[in-house]
Design a binder for these strands. Structure first.
Lengths: 227, 227
DNA sequence: CCAAAAGTGTTAACGCTACACCCATGT
DNA sequence: ACATGGGTGTAGCGTTAACACTTTTGG
């Protein structure tokens, strides 16, 4: 009895290590997550793009490599989110997964399926299908982190094109935080922070006054109180 | 050439998964970290208590088990910190480690070395020796998280005995944040938050007015703006 | 009576919130 | 001229930061 317990504790570790990426963008005024559709096991299910870590790469580079291989998305700033270690999170094997998340600008539409999956798509977070493994949990966690993050950093820059109007910017905040924001207060605050500045260009769209286009002064990560 | 690369990528994953715990307390007015002194490999070096995850346990329970086994510390709320995945962080093998951190009250002095290590001790963070592996990095990260955490939650309760004076409480904040705080403003703010309440007891210590003893109204995690 | 820490209020500056109208454009 | 979204200011309120003296005790 005692022996078997000791034996169990000292059994050779047989755990696989994976990363999963939760990538957000804003598309058609909606917050979307990048999902892949699975082929073999769990066929037809949607999941976050993820995979096993190679022996000779860091976690960060594994996340980057897997994202690129599975979806063709590259050059994004991936940030580690959390490591999910429940014993049964993967029904086929013991796999622990470190989740990463990132924000990409809306133009990132050059997503491509790899041979390993049957589809890649941006899915609105409000219409997420049930995801494979514990990816629902990961996505929920990531969404919360996103809301926190844009509230106290300038991270929102990576969800916008290089030039944008103040209304565009405000909409991003409203979509992610899920609430309406007062236009005058928002502008006052964001301009006072000195993280964006106007360009000489304007955006003409429809029968109304053209909007001034702004750009971010710096895309270096910066802590600021925004909302 | 191309073949060897593909082979490498598809090589069987051979990575071990560990947890490391960064446990804080306040001792003699100093912020301290719980360290173990190593016996075999890296003999004589200090390190955070850590070890490999078992096949049939979650990450959280691994952290708890390892902390108890190596130091006899139990019943603490461990929170996941970050997962460190550099390729060379462990010079002997490829080991990825998920770090946890926790705060314990100063009375936790019943720490005991296990046979596997030669010592366990509370070491002031200001006097940390160079630690084994990448544990310096982990400890630094944990210290930052601690400062953040006590600033916007009631987590500080787990660093104090059940009854404490307002001066005790203020000292904890000053030690962790590394700055002096105005006594009147601090008291006003902390009392307005309604997370502590006075008891009928006082603490008499030395030739001066006795201090009222307080307790926490709740030890449930709670988000509050403190400093 | 002296030393040592406990305890206690007020004021000024700042930031946040709420709120409504005119502007520039295309049709 | 009208419809549409762009753009702007202010007043009241609450929060924060700065600041110094009295109280209670033991020796």
């Amino acid at each position: 009895m005692k022996d078997s317990k000791i034996k169990k504790e000292h059994a050779k570790q047989n755990i696989k290590l994976a990363v999963d990426n939760c990538i957000f963008t804003i598309k058609d005024g909606k917050l979307c997550v990048l999902l892949i559709k699975m082929k073999d096991k769990l066929q037809g299910h949607w999941a976050l793009p993820g995979g096993l870590v190679n022996n000779n790469e860091t976690l960060d580079s594994a996340a980057k490599r897997i994202l690129k291989t599975q979806t063709s998305v590259s050059d994004v700033y991936l940030e580690q989110l959390y490591t999910f270690g429940d014993v049964k999170r993967d029904p086929f094997a013991r796999v622990i997964s470190t989740a990463y998340f990132a924000l990409v600008p809306p133009k990132t539409n050059n997503i491509k399926t790899s041979a390993k999956y049957s589809d890649v798509r941006w899915i609105p977070v409000k219409k997420l299908p049930g995801l494979a493994y514990d990816h629902d949990k990961i996505a929920k966690y990531a969404k919360q982190r996103l809301a926190d993050k844009i509230s106290y950093t300038n991270a929102v820059w990576s969800l916008l094109p290089t030039k944008f109007t103040l209304t565009d910017l405000q909409k991003v905040y409203e979509i992610i935080l899920g609430k309406v924001i007062d236009k005058r207060n928002f502008r006052k605050k964001i301009l006072a922070l000195d993280i964006i500045h106007p360009t000489s260009e304007t955006k003409i769209k429809g029968a109304h006054r053209p909007a001034k286009l702004y750009e971010f002064s710096s895309t270096k990560p910066k802590i600021v109180e925004i909302v």
